[in-house]
Amino acid sequence: MKERVWTPDGPLDVGLAVAPQRHGGGDPTWRQGRDGAIWRTSRTPDGPGTLRLSLRATIVYGHAWGPGADWLLETMPALLGADDDISGFVVKHEVLQDVARKHPGLRIGRTGRVMEALVPAILEQKVVGREAWRAWRWLLNKYGEPAPGPAPEGMRVMPEPGTWREIPTWDWHRSGAEAVRARTIATAAWYAAKLEAAPTSADADRLLRTLPGVGVWTSAEVRQRAFGDPDAVSVGDYHLAKIIGYALTGEKTDDPGMMRLLEPYRGHRHRATVLIGLTGLRPPARGPRMPVRDYRSF
């Protein structure tokens, strides 16, 4: 076991910082213990690792296991938003004033691991969350490896890129991921080394969007998590534009309308959407919900 003690230079909400890395309630790479500690696995450049995060007063305690332990502790501050520059961000809408005061510890963290963000983002393309998260759990339970150290039962580390390329068609089907998403992930895995080496969010965006099946939405979801990009907006999201329009104007809007509303926050547009999400404001539900598909044969 390796350990590190880190004191942030300002308010920090550890849970909010790492929450975007969680993909569903049963995510095998993420757990929160009864004591409040957060456990997370990662396939680092040095190999698999498990990180345990706990906060006492204003001090963060990190404990890590596995070949990737040193890397996880070295990058722990970045994961928790130490590199997040909030200069220039000013709340422009009254509805956000209160939530910004209530969450002074909001920070956008970065993992530095592109494939860990890309695979679940592809699984989440144009489907409801429960369908994507079911596939993510199935694939990691089948092809991931056990988390190093005394991690909570059932935690797994995501597979290496080569494993994603070799998953047979029938197992993609069993997971609930249809051929298009399976092919997109397998193709991306061939370019994993190049993607992981992207030095900036803008470079990653250019590389990601050359891959078949990866568009604006998927690229933004990856850059928010891997690079902590405060301006990467998930254009094309099924719900986001409606939520932002309703929260800021009382009326739902579309993607162009959303981007007009977010323009005053340019440079921090993703940060603004996170704050909007924290307001809890949602348009009234009308009409049928998007169904959870399940075409697997047993």
Rank of each mutant, 00 (worst) to 15 (best):
R40L: 15
A226M: 03
H93C: 06
T273G: 03
A193V: 08
K102N: 09
A285L: 13
G112F: 11
P148Q: 06
I185Q: 09
V233H: 04
V127H: 12
R260L: 14
I38R: 00
L139V: 01
E251G: 01
R52E: 08
T163I: 11
A204Y: 01
R156K: 13
R223E: 11
G267L: 13
G47W: 03
Y143D: 13
G215E: 05
T249Q: 06
G36N: 09
A78M: 11
K126H: 14
R296E: 01
G105V: 11
L240V: 02
L240W: 02
P230Y: 08
H173A: 13
E74P: 04
R286Y: 01
R286W: 04
R206M: 09
P256N: 02
G236C: 10
S87T: 15
K252W: 08
V60Y: 02
F227N: 03
G26Q: 12
L72M: 15
L51V: 06
V233M: 04
M76F: 07
A135L: 06
V274N: 09
D27F: 00
G176Q: 00
M290T: 15
F227D: 03
L79H: 10
R110Y: 05
K102P: 01
R43H: 05
R289H: 07
L72H: 03
H270T: 02
V222A: 14
A179P: 14
W71P: 02
V91W: 10
A202N: 05
P159I: 10
L140V: 13
A220V: 12
D35H: 09
G47F: 07
W164V: 09
E153Y: 07
A37S: 12
P284G: 05
E160C: 04
K252H: 02
G245P: 00
P148L: 14
R101N: 10
L106S: 00
R271M: 01
A121S: 15
R260M: 06
P256V: 01
A192I: 01
V216R: 14
P67S: 00
L211N: 02
L208R: 04
W133M: 11
E124V: 10
A220G: 10
V214P: 01
R271F: 09
T7Q: 15
P256D: 02
P161H: 08
A285T: 09
V222E: 10
L80I: 00
P8V: 02
I122H: 00
D254P: 11
V119P: 00
A247D: 07
D237S: 05
M259A: 03
E124F: 11
V180I: 08
V233K: 03
P28W: 08
E160W: 12
A247V: 03
K194M: 05
V14F: 00
A57S: 11
I86M: 07
V60M: 10
A192H: 05
A117S: 15
A204L: 12
K126Q: 13
A232P: 06
I244V: 15
L118E: 03
P161M: 12
D35E: 13
R22L: 03
A179K: 15
G68R: 06
G162T: 09
T210F: 00
A197M: 06
W30C: 10
E145T: 14
A121W: 07
E74Q: 14
S42V: 07
K126E: 07
L140W: 14
R113E: 04
S219L: 04
A147H: 12
G154L: 01
E196Y: 14
F298Q: 05
G26I: 00
